[in-house]
Design a protein around this nucleic acid. Structure first.
Lengths: 244, 244
DNA sequence: CGGGCCGATTGATCTGGATCAATGAGGCGA
DNA sequence: TCGCCTCATTGATCCAGATCAATCGGCCCG
């Protein structure tokens, strides 16, 4: 299943979340260097952070909130190609521009690093670039996992797969038993991620509710009484055990 | 559109193809080091190179022929998540196992590097790991591009998108005018790449033929008289101009 | 030369999800 | 409090692509 992307730096000083460690070595030095080129930005729900093909002069990691990466065809069809949850990294060191629209779907805080100095630091600090390679490989795995969802799963399975991903990223997640969380996406955004229409998303959410796989309080608040049943509905064999 | 993945080393001594350059610096030294850990393997069409979850103790680049990366669900549904053409790289430095089945779809020659020493060399030679990051970002872009194809394009557009990708990778490709090539995939493999059934692939190939967008000599040999028309059929706005 | 096999094509029918349309249910500003 | 706006649900109908099935054509092997 989708891999939880570890964040770039460990315990990023004044970030409100505890980033996971890059590795044990040299932390102090790197953190000091990263501190210098670091700044925070916050965005409101719905705000576009970067437009596709615009120049993007920073890389960043999500501190709180949720953002999406989206591709759009000229005729308006859109496909979401990435979901950025807290601790996820975004940005393409070595590339000038953004490849996709990046949109905040909830209020969002990002911890940004100016690109030029970040790249310089990357050149000088091998293990940062190894860490970045690691993270990019994780993203590639997640993208390919999603290709299976888009290409071969039914509407029902698609919905369950998405709920799975979001549920697993909750701070207090345990692989068996109940999970409760807020969906960070509208029905339309879910549809764009899953290659469906919003009507189909709505119908399948209702179907899962009627089947007792989930229960809903309002539009966004979800309770999953039994993760095993949800995974079954997702057509998912893996137990998520190889998540990092 | 899909990015042409540059190969890892430049002009790899006795490979029959000329790999593109990593960068101008230090070539001689690196080539010498790479020479030592390099070996060739050949496979027959249909042969599985690595099974998903098996350990994979090499990384490699395709010298000639075509291979695919495929994911399979327990109930047998399969989705191809990558197409490896000559000069493409495969392997995940820093990971033990393969994430997907790797299958040769034509006779295939790969230039392999034993993983352990390759990783060691990567640690010691920053610009190799930068190059690898670059290549992984290209693959990520390609995977995300394909997510749009899988999630939002019609059967007709999917077929045209695939033909586009293969056509662009022909040695003698020119963006306007005619292109002639052999499809490296069966109808079934095309279906697995596109999230369709083989019958739909066949019908849409016939439809494109009847519409004059392509012509077929036998099952595999394709002529595209006008790339612009093919791209139009693919619902593709880009002119492929940002390919490397 | 003939049979069997594999991949591809084509036809007939079915169906999951799209499309078109109406209704409901918060939230918010006047 | 009302009206509006955005998001979600639900219903009715349609259709692209799946499914089931028959046939074809090239190729290899006896």
């Amino acid at each position: 299943m989708t891999v939880i992307t570890k964040s770039l730096v460990s315990n990023c000083a004044d970030c409100p979340i505890r980033h996971r460690a890059v590795c044990a070595r040299c932390e102090a030095d790197e953190l000091a260097q990263l501190e210098e080129i670091k700044y925070y930005r916050s965005f409101e729900a719905g705000q576009t952070i970067v437009w596709s093909n615009d120049r993007m002069d920073f890389v960043a990691s999500v501190v709180s909130g949720v953002a999406t990466l989206t591709q759009t065809m000229e005729d308006g069809r859109t496909q979401m190609v990435g979901l950025l949850l807290p601790s996820d990294f975004v940005g393409r060191p070595g590339r000038k521009g953004a490849a996709y629209d990046i949109v905040a779907t909830t209020d969002l805080i990002m911890c940004c690093f100016r690109k030029k100095p970040f790249e310089k630091m990357m050149m000088e600090t091998p293990h940062i670039s190894h860490r970045l390679l690691e993270m990019t490989l994780d993203e590639l795995d997640a993208a390919r996992e999603w290709m299976l969802v888009l290409g071969r799963k039914t509407a029902r399975e698609k919905i369950a797969s998405l709920l799975n991903i979001v549920a697993r990223r909750q701070p207090a997640f345990s692989p068996h038993g109940a999970v409760v969380f807020d969906l960070p996406l509208t029905r339309e955004a879910m549809a764009d991620y899953l290659g469906l229409t919003l009507e189909t998303v709505s119908r399948q959410m209702s179907a899962l509710r009627k089947a007792g796989v989930i229960s809903l309080q309002g539009n966004r608040h979800v309770t999953v009484p039994d993760m095993a049943r949800l995974m079954e509905a997702a057509g998912d064999d893996s137990d998520g055990g190889h998540l990092i």
